[in-house]
Simulated scan of single mutants.
Amino acid sequence: MLERFTKDARQVVTDTQVQARELGHRRVGTEHLLLALLTGGGAAAETLGRHGLDAADLRARIVRAAEEPLDPEALRAIGIDLDAVRQATEETFGAGALDVPAGAGRPRGVLRGHIPFTPEAKKSLELGLRQAIRLKQKHIAPGHLLLGLLHDESFPSARLLVGAGVDLGELRADITGLLTSKAA
């Protein structure tokens, strides 16, 4: 599949390793792909910027998401109010009782070598290929990778975009329009 990637798309995939390593993460996720797309320049990055996404803000959102081991929205869906649980715990055990200690969960030292991709990140790359096929295009460009990240709204990348106020449907339409106009 990688042989179909454009030079820019290959660079994005390479840059995900850098992004994960800089954040001290042991796995490359869809959020790292999104950050690599945003910081990589080019049409996909410009489109993300036009939709209000900023690299520093996205990086901060990724850090916050990694520090919060529980997904408040998922818990709410099954009837658990994380804020109520946190409040009750702090009333019993004191302020910050559920906080993760600084540096906990972070690897010690510098990560070396290849950082493995999460199943979601692998799936998003496959979905990027499917988007190129759907658009009848022979190569996979950064825009196709972005469409792959947007395909499944449960991916961390899509949740981060929604959290940043991005309308996923509008972003999909803009990227698709960009890809099809370049092919024409």
Rank of each mutant, 00 (worst) to 15 (best):
150 L>D: 07
77 A>E: 12
30 T>Y: 00
154 S>A: 12
78 I>H: 12
135 L>V: 06
3 E>W: 10
172 R>N: 07
55 A>T: 05
172 R>T: 02
159 R>D: 02
139 H>M: 14
13 V>H: 07
50 R>L: 13
60 A>M: 09
81 D>G: 04
35 L>P: 08
104 A>K: 07
160 L>N: 06
35 L>M: 15
116 P>K: 00
40 G>S: 04
16 T>V: 03
5 F>L: 12
32 H>R: 02
164 A>N: 10
47 T>M: 05
168 L>N: 02
41 G>L: 10
4 R>D: 07
76 R>S: 13
107 P>V: 15
119 P>F: 11
18 V>G: 07
92 T>F: 13
152 D>W: 01
111 L>G: 13
183 A>N: 12
34 L>K: 03
134 R>F: 12
107 P>I: 07
77 A>N: 11
41 G>K: 07
136 K>Q: 14
36 A>V: 08
122 K>S: 10
128 G>D: 09
136 K>M: 01
130 R>H: 14
165 G>S: 11
165 G>Y: 02
155 F>S: 04
98 L>F: 04
145 L>R: 00
171 L>K: 03
78 I>G: 01
79 G>Q: 10
13 V>Y: 04
66 A>Y: 14
84 A>S: 08
17 Q>E: 14
168 L>E: 02
37 L>S: 00
54 D>W: 07
69 P>D: 13
182 K>N: 11
133 I>D: 09
11 Q>S: 13
8 D>P: 08
88 A>G: 12
12 V>H: 05
46 E>Q: 15
125 L>C: 05
55 A>F: 00
119 P>S: 00
53 L>V: 15
52 G>V: 07
113 G>L: 04
67 E>Y: 09
132 A>D: 00
114 H>Y: 09
31 E>H: 03
44 A>E: 04
170 E>A: 15
89 T>I: 11
173 A>S: 08
6 T>S: 15
140 I>V: 15
50 R>I: 05
158 A>I: 02
183 A>Y: 07
